[in-house]
């Protein structure tokens, strides 16, 4: 479980996150949603330690992440996998080398064991046989799936995904969402996804946190979203004119949305 409390972050005089506290449960997909500029990416970067908060605490299973010893930090890092918005695959390495990189760096596995592990991960993301390809030879969706394979190669306990569906068509997005959800349940991982894709929210949102102007303004699960009377949440969900028309039509036909 990841627990954060009293997180405050500002850049210069501009506050981005104001007193954020939340729990992220294992075996569940936790979503951080909100409009652009709400502070989602900053929160995710704080959680993985890429930037430090001004105030507050971050706990990974009772381990104080902000005051951890360097040696313990490396051990903890090995339990963390991350899927980046742009996949962040190393261009000069093949798919196999990309996925194998954490194994090469941190394990004493034999070549055969590493190869088997890479193939297992590739199989898990339904990309068998593309080991020798370079990232530039793959589609956006395939790159994301290779990114997921690399993120899970060390069997992490925590998975972070930054906008996993950005730049993907709705069908491929669905595949990625299902993949992340299944992997989370299979490995009992604490998964945190930063997204503004409402399809993702409604598909995999076990625990949804809505950020608005640097504060948590709503928290619940996907089933509670529709019944919530939070106006900011509704403005966010029904931001598109198409959904507004759909909602209007539903309401005028007696449905309560």
């Amino acid at each position: 479980m990841i627990k954060i409390s009293g997180i405050y972050k500002s850049f210069g005089d501009t506050p981005v996150l104001k007193n954020i506290s939340a729990d992220f449960q294992p075996g569940k997909t936790n979503l951080i949603i909100g409009r652009s500029g709400a502070g989602k990416t900053v929160l995710l970067k704080l959680l993985v330690g890429l930037i430090p908060p001004n105030e507050g605490q971050i706990f990974y299973d009772q381990v104080d992440f902000l005051h951890i010893k360097k040696k313990d930090l490396r051990t903890l890092r090995m339990k963390v996998g991350m899927l980046f918005q742009g996949s962040a695959l190393f261009d000069s390495l093949t798919v196999e080398e990309n996925i194998r990189f954490p194994l090469d760096m941190f394990t004493a596995m034999t070549k055969k064991e590493k190869s088997d592990r890479v193939n297992t991960c590739l199989n898990r993301v339904s990309l068998d046989g593309i080991n020798a390809k370079f990232p530039s030879e793959l589609s956006g969706g395939m790159q994301k799936r290779v990114g997921i394979a690399r993120a899970i190669v060390l069997n992490p306990s925590y998975l972070f995904c930054d906008e996993p569906n950005s730049g993907l068509d709705p069908k491929t997005s669905l595949v990625i969402d299902e993949l992340i959800k299944d992997i989370t349940i299979e490995n009992n991982m604490t998964t945190i996804i930063n997204t503004h894709d409402m399809n993702s929210v409604m598909e995999v949102g076990d625990n949804v946190i809505l950020l608005h102007e640097g504060k948590i303004c709503w928290q619940g699960n996907k089933d509670e979203i529709m019944s919530s009377d939070n106006e900011i949440l509704h403005d966010f969900i029904f931001a598109s004119p198409f959904l507004q028309r759909l909602r209007h039509a539903a309401v005028s036909n007696g449905f309560d949305i």
């Binding site: 330690g49 890429l50 890092r77 963390v80 980046f84 918005q85 962040a88 760096m105």
Partner: peptide
Amino acid sequence: EHIDAMEIMG
């Protein structure tokens, strides 16, 4: 973000 990716790996 390759450097960030490596940082997160440890």
